[in-house]
Design a protein around this nucleic acid. Sequence first.
RNA 1: GGAGAGAUGGCCGAGUGGUCUAAGGCGCACGCCUGGAGAGCGUGUAAUCGCCAAAAGUGAUUCGCGGGUUCGAAUCCCGCUCUCUCCGCCA
Length: 435
Amino acid sequence: NTIQVNLTPMLPLKLIQEDRELVIRRLQVKNFDARVIIDQITALDQSRRQLQHQTDEKLAEMNALSRQIGDHIKAGNNAEALRLKDATASLKEQIKELQKKSAEAESALDARIIELPNLPHESVPPGKGHEDNVVVRSGGKMPVRQPGWLPHWDLGKHYDILDFDLGNKLTGAGFPVFKGQGARLERALINFFLDEGEKAGYLEILPPIMVNEDSGFGTGQLPDKEGQMYVVPVDRFYLIPTAEVPVTNIYRDTILNDSDFPLKNMAYTPCFRREAGSYGKEVRGLNRVHQFDKVEIVQIAHPDHSYQALEEMVNHVESLVHKLELPYRIVKLCGGDMSFTSALTYDFEVYAAAQDKWLEVSSVSNFEAFQANRLKLRFREAGNKKNRLAHTLNGSALALPRIVAALMENNQTPDGILIPEALKPYTGFEKIVRR
RNA sequence: GGAGAGAUGGCCGAGUGGUCUAAGGCGCACGCCUGGAGAGCGUGUAAUCGCCAAAAGUGAUUCGCGGGUUCGAAUCCCGCUCUCUCCGCCA
């Protein structure tokens, strides 16, 4: 079950050739020591080039010979043709040998290159983990916690809108069942997020929720996150961990025009994550589940404007939590907390009062050309002969479970759970009550 | 699930072993023509990697994907994927 790489991802190689020290320095911010691997890459690239050069020359020789043989046969000069044929035998063997070595050198090089994470943006702060992230701004009104307030898992039971035991029976731990007003609340949030996205210019997509291996590789889940995805072995399909995968892969192997920018897509999908290695208090209730609903926004941007696009996406997500009247903060992730694929990531956290916890509800990232390189997503630019790689971005807008958790916990009253104003047209009710 | 047909450039489409360095058409770009537009005429029209300091140039690869036969494969052989038609099953 090794990952097939169809084409050499060339971007990191170019960067390494241009400025090796820069690559090393930047990856240090992600706490990734790249020295050894970069030396290996440089050496492997050398031998790959050399081998290709040799192979190409032999191939050119063979092509010339074949043409001559054809010409001789046509001219009726069979003796000469036969003589030349003899000469091809050893050449053929040399070519075979060289091609084998070339292919080996190339896959060895590819294997190393795809181990390199994306370079973080210059502004990314160094740091080890969550505690080193930087709060860039916050908003919303902090709820005043009342005595006797219950965490959302208890509220879910009390109002019979959220049933973990039933999910456990049907599937297993981490597959919650929403019932009645709970199910309706999910549907309301999905429609609310999609409507807001449409107003912001995003085109709605309803993609497959299983993808093939090429798609998993294109957005960088494979091979990095192989163990985190559910797999359908008979057909070698992966259940998507996020709509980012199918939506961004729409643009795999395409060449856009620069007039196509910015491309703005969004999709609602269920998302599936194995979350292997998670345990304890952090995973209680809706805090961490294996299947959840999410609306994802994706942008394909011109490299010169991708950080503008990132800003715009952050503002869009902020408007959503604002309309839901949730207390939130936006943090810029430090190098150690960033994903393999990202160049810059902002996380959104909302405050869940009963747990007294900040819960991550959105992650908005610019991947620069990292995904585009794997996707072969390029664009033509007027006046530029060479096609350039586009930039890809995505963000949750929003992931539902923790939003639901915060809404339930913060809006609980003795009479029921109050629905925020903006959501009422979508739920069709003003509060969640006991049936 | 069974039987048959097919997959060629941005698109349509020709091509059954060397003249494929892929015909022809459409589209697109530029030029000529025009008061302007159209028509007409002419020219051009892919990607990836290598060599070269670079441009120019040049070598290699790519006709769904992977193997094979051959001095030589879009073309012949084997496997796979996908599409279409018919039959069966089915929300």
